[in-house]
Computed example of a mutant assay.
Amino acid sequence: MSLQIPISGAALRRGQEAQANEPRAIAARYDSALNRVVVDLANGCTLAFPPALAEGLEAASPEQLSSVEIIGCGYGLHWEELNVDLSMPGLMAGIFGTRAWMARQGGRSTAAAKAAASRANGAKGRCPRKTS
């Protein structure tokens, strides 16, 4: 017995609009030479990102990264062994994890000048005064 759920015309239109306008993956792979997850989109574009940017992928092995699957009609990526799911609209917007993950990533910097300034300011016990 199959259950039929009626779909309103408005819901059908929203779904068709989303399918036409939102990024959908048609192929995904891990490129070990570039150290990038590479996603081919239905609109002909390609998205590539380093796994270190994405929550749950930062410590994954190349073998684990290679097991990427496309889910949800192309709206998401899934790594079964890592239990990681990333949404294509989120990736396209630069969202590589949860809100807490993204907040922690925003404060990180590896710039030598910033690190040196931070050490110098820390040695003073305060932030430097502004000079006009």
Rank of each mutant, 00 (worst) to 15 (best):
M1S: 13
S2I: 09
Q4H: 10
Q4M: 05
P6C: 01
R14Q: 13
G15F: 00
A18M: 02
Q19D: 02
N21F: 00
N21A: 00
E22G: 01
R24Y: 03
R24M: 04
I26L: 08
A27R: 15
A27H: 14
R29P: 02
R29E: 14
D31N: 15
S32D: 15
S32M: 07
A33Y: 14
A33W: 11
N35T: 05
V37W: 04
V37C: 13
V37F: 10
V38Y: 10
V39P: 01
D40L: 05
D40W: 05
D40P: 12
D40K: 07
G44T: 05
C45N: 12
C45W: 01
C45T: 02
A48Y: 06
L53K: 11
A54E: 11
E55N: 11
E55V: 13
G56I: 12
L57T: 04
S61M: 06
S61L: 09
S61T: 15
S61F: 06
P62T: 03
P62D: 05
E63H: 04
E63V: 08
E63K: 03
Q64E: 15
Q64M: 09
Q64R: 04
Q64P: 12
L65N: 00
S66W: 00
S66C: 04
E69T: 10
E69W: 05
I71E: 10
G72V: 02
G74E: 02
Y75C: 03
E81F: 01
V84C: 14
V84G: 14
D85T: 08
S87M: 10
S87F: 09
M88I: 15
G90K: 08
M92P: 13
G94I: 10
I95F: 07
T98C: 02
R99K: 11
R99I: 00
R99L: 01
R99N: 03
A100I: 00
W101Q: 05
M102G: 06
R104W: 01
Q105N: 04
G106I: 00
G106H: 09
G107Q: 13
R108A: 01
S109Q: 01
T110F: 11
T110Y: 13
A111E: 11
A111R: 04
A113I: 02
A113M: 01
A116D: 14
A117W: 02
R119M: 13
A120P: 03
N121Q: 05
N121R: 03
G122E: 09
G125H: 10
G125C: 13
R126Y: 04
R126W: 07
C127S: 08
P128G: 11
P128W: 08
K130E: 10
T131D: 08
T131L: 06
